[in-house]
Design a binder for these strands. Structure first.
Length: 264
DNA sequence: CGGCGGGCAATG
DNA sequence: CATTGCCCGCCG
């Protein structure tokens, strides 16, 4: 897409977004990046409509539960849990090219995801002065387009994360993952999520659950090798040695890389 | 040390 | 509501 370079940068950016979203925007509509409804309305709410984020096109097999909702975004997919008001997992497909494109300016505009029912979603006030940071599952630093960058700030992509861990060891794991993808032969599928315990605390009026652990599964489709990072969500936690795929499945109860879709 | 990427909050 | 400045940890 080539828009006139004589236009102001903001106009070119806004126009590109409007075309990309293929949604009519009136003259008084806010800048698409800053309008969560325009950001999300065209996005499907079933994994069947975004299989590209899953290895072999097959989403993880999680034990059935109520108040779980599938959300597709431009560069990632979320299984959201209304009980914890957080994602259960967030899936991405990364390639060398997508990482090379991941040079967008950080959007830094968090928003509550209006596609979720009000009694299932986190609000900005829940995180404010909670002592926890809004920790991306699909990292902002992975996002290859302005729209994907903006969408990554949905609270449906966030969990309450220890501030030091998020900015330290966890950020390093995210960087290491990007470095791995830059050297990989083809597609790398990454699934990131929280793990709660019976005594997990909550934050805010809506009771957003604070995870005890965070995991990040990395699956290199070209080598068929998989491993997982497993980190306690607490201050002082260091980058720990990766665990096996099977050990991650055992700890979470989620079969992240099923060989085939479940039979009905 | 500076740059970068993970965040935060105060300010008009 | 958008800008701006700031903190922190990691890395070259």
């Amino acid at each position: 897409m080539n828009l006139p370079l004589s236009w102001p940068r903001s106009l070119r950016l806004a126009t590109a977004l409007v075309l990309a979203l293929a949604s009519p925007v009136s003259a008084r509509t806010p800048h698409p990046i800053y309008d969560s409804s325009a950001l999300l309305t065209p996005q499907p709410t079933s994994f069947a409509q975004c299989p590209q984020f899953f290895a072999r096109g097959i989403p993880p097999a999680a034990p059935p539960a109520h108040r779980r909702r599938e959300l597709c975004y431009e560069a990632f997919a979320v299984l959201h849990d209304g009980g914890s008001r957080t994602p259960l997992f967030v899936a991405q497909r990364l390639t060398r090219k997508s990482i090379e494109d991941a040079d967008e300016r950080r959007a830094d505009r968090f928003f509550s995801d209006a596609r979720l029912p009000a009694d299932e979603r986190a609000e900005l006030e829940d995180y404010k002065r909670s002592g926890y940071s809004r920790g991306h599952m699909a990292p902002a630093g992975d996002m290859p387009t302005p729209t994907a960058m903006a969408q990554s700030f949905s609270l449906a992509n966030m969990v309450p994360q220890n501030i030091q861990h998020n900015g330290g060891p966890w950020a390093k794991i995210e960087q290491d993952t990007r470095q791995y993808v830059l050297r990989a032969k083809g597609e790398v599928y990454v699934i990131t999520g929280p793990v709660f315990t019976a005594t997990s605390p909550t934050i805010g009026r809506n009771g957003v659950k604070v995870p005890a652990y965070l995991y990040k599964l990395v699956y290199d489709a070209s080598t068929q090798r998989a491993w997982a990072h497993w980190q306690a969500n607490r201050e002082g936690e260091r980058v720990s040695a990766p665990i096996s795929y099977q050990e991650l499945v055992r700890r979470t109860g989620i079969e992240f890389l099923p060989k085939a879709s479940p039979q009905h």
